[in-house]
Amino acid sequence: MIVESRSKPAPEARAAARGALSINDLHKSFVIGGTLRPVLEGINLDVKPGEFVSIVGASGCGKSTLLRLIVGLDDQYGGEIRLDGERVATTSLDRGIVFQDHRLFPWMTLEQNIDLALLNTDTPKARRAQIVADHIALVNLVGFEKAYPHQLSGGMAQRAAIARALVTEPKLLLLDEPLGALDALTRVHVQNELQRIWMTQRSTMVMVTHDVEEALYLGDRVIVMAPSPGRIRRIVEVDLPHPRDRGAPLLHRLKDEILSELMAGPGETDNLVRLPEREKR
C-alpha cells in the first residue's frame, strides 16, 4: 500500500527551496511634486535557487528601487514579492545586499565591519571569529583584518562589503551596481572574484548593473528593463558554462543585441548635445 507521505519534503527539495525568489505583478509609484509617478509596473520574475540573474537598463528604469523593495528597505508596493513562499515586508538576514558605495562603517576595522553582520544571529561568539576569518579569506583580504576602510582601495572595500553580505549566509544576495564606483581594471578583477565566490557558495544572486558585458559575463539570465515606468522588456538566457570565457562569441552577440535594443528606445536622442547654429553651417 502506498501511504501518501505527509512528512516534511525530502532533503533535496528542502535545500532547493533555499533562495527561490518570486515576484508577481509588482508595481510601485512615487509622489513627486504632487503627481503620482509610476516607477515600476507589471514586474514578473521567478529566480531559481542558486541562479545568478543580472538586470540591465537605462537610468530611470527603477532597478535600484526594485532591489530596495526586494531587500525590504521599502515596504510600500503593490503586487507580491516572495522568498521561498514568504512575503517580503521588511529587512531580514535572509536577504543580503551590496551597495555601489561599500557602506562599510568608517569607524570600524574590516573585521569589526564583517562581524557586525553576525550580531543578531544565533551564532555563538566563539564561532563568529572563525566565520569572519573564513569570509575574509574568501574575498582574498587576508592580512587586512585590522585595517580601517579609508586604508582600503575601492576594490578591496567592495570585496569587504561582499564578505559582510555573505557572512550571514543569506538565501538571496542582491547587488546594486556593486562595481560601478571602481575603475575598469579593478572592475574586471572583482568580476572574476564575484564569479569565483558564487561558484563556491551557489547562493541566489540578483545583480543590477549598467554594464551589459558584466551582466552577460556573470549572469545565467539577463533581464533587460525599459524605463518610464520601469518594466521588463526582455529576458535573455545565457546558456554558457561557468567559469565563463570573456571571448565567447555568444557573449558578444548577445551584448550587441541587448545594446541595440537599449539604444532603440524613445529616449535615445535626449542625451546628445545639439548645437543647431553650428550644424546648419
Binding site: V71, G72, L73, T91, S92, L93, G96, I97, F99, D101, R103, F105, W107, M108, L116, A117, L119, N120, T168
Partner: peptide, 27 residues
Amino acid sequence: QRYLDVGRIYGFGAFQRFRLILLPAAM
C-alpha cells in the same frame, strides 16, 4: 541615512543603532 540602512538590514535594535552607528558617526 545609508549607514542607518545597513543597520536596518542587519536587524539592529535601537540600542545597537545608538552604540554602533549614531555615536561613533557623531563623534
